[in-house]
Nucleic acid binder design. Structure first.
Lengths: 164, 164
DNA sequence: CTGCGTGCAAAGCATTTGCACCTAT
DNA sequence: ATAGGTGCAAATGCTTTGCACGCAG
């Protein structure tokens, strides 16, 4: 019944959705540690994140949040996102479309992306072997990896099919 | 002695510098096909590219070109770069520092990047095994890959050493 | 000659910031 | 009460564009 197992060095292989409870907790701790305040706006924005959608853009997020409180503006969303990224519970992505996108961190299953250039769909994938090779390459150059980005651009199966 | 072997499906293993002559030829053909003109400015910019440096930013390029003709401005550099990218002889990269960087295409040896967050140094690496795994993943999702981006962010060996 | 290419300055965009007001602590 | 948070609008910083002139074909 001991849920908290010892910390594993690196390779977590269990694929499962982000641990929402842990992330919420992590955020609370982060804010407490920095003396940051819990405001209505921040709560709305954070909730919007926990509500589902992956790879949200600032505009999408603002729209969603504005539905609940029309007074919220870009500045607050940008500032809150910055905070969320610093807290570590949200990750930032720049695919090539000019918009920065955000998604909840998922420590257990690090994933990379397939980006469809036709319809814009973003699919996630995981490949531990690639991660392992990466580490080997980094070691070869004496490089200390902090994060990485691995994206495949092209046509998703649907778009390939539609045009066949 | 038969150099031109049948087209191999994917994996080219010969690492060597970009084939400058072929690239120049490719550009000439591209421009001819579109009826684009060969101007002093374009020549200067293209030459700057072929002179060496990898991962040039627009500012670096403009500076270099201005040394030879101070009248050249950003607009021309941006427009020429766009043309070079369209011709296929130059690739565009956006690492996270806000600047778009450009480098000569190297079909023979596709490489990816190690980006040092301390000093900004960009190192290239090649790993055919990763490419192979990528293809397998894409196949798994029925995804048709057109290009990819694989970047490792962290500290280069020099920066690690300096801080040790 | 004709129209593509160039330079300049102005416009565009996503994102950031200054400032006065507001509010969680 | 008081420092951090918010909104608005103005400012940034990279990139693109409109327009009049210049030059390649």
């Amino acid at each position: 019944m001991n849920v908290k197992s010892g910390a594993q060095p690196t390779t977590g292989l269990a694929p499962r959705p982000p641990d929402l409870e842990r992330l919420r907790h992590q955020l609370v701790e982060f804010m407490a540690a920095r003396g940051l305040r819990s405001t209505e706006q921040r709560r709305l924005i954070v909730d919007a994140f926990f509500e589902q959608t992956e790879h949200v853009s600032v505009d999408e997020l603002l729209e969603r949040v504005k539905a609940k409180d029309p007074r919220i503006g870009y500045a607050t969303v940008y500032r809150t996102l910055k905070m969320l990224v610093e807290s570590g519970i949200v990750h930032e992505h720049r695919f090539g479309d000019g918009y920065t996108r955000y998604e909840l961190t998922d420590d257990d299953a690090h994933h990379d992306h397939l980006i469809c250039l036709e319809c814009g769909k973003i699919t996630e994938f995981e490949e531990p072997q690639i991660e392992a090779l990466q580490d080997r390459i980094a070691a070869r150059y004496g490089f200390h990896v902090e994060s990485h980005k691995h994206e495949l651009y092209g046509k998703c199966s649907e778009c390939v099919a539609r045009q066949a």
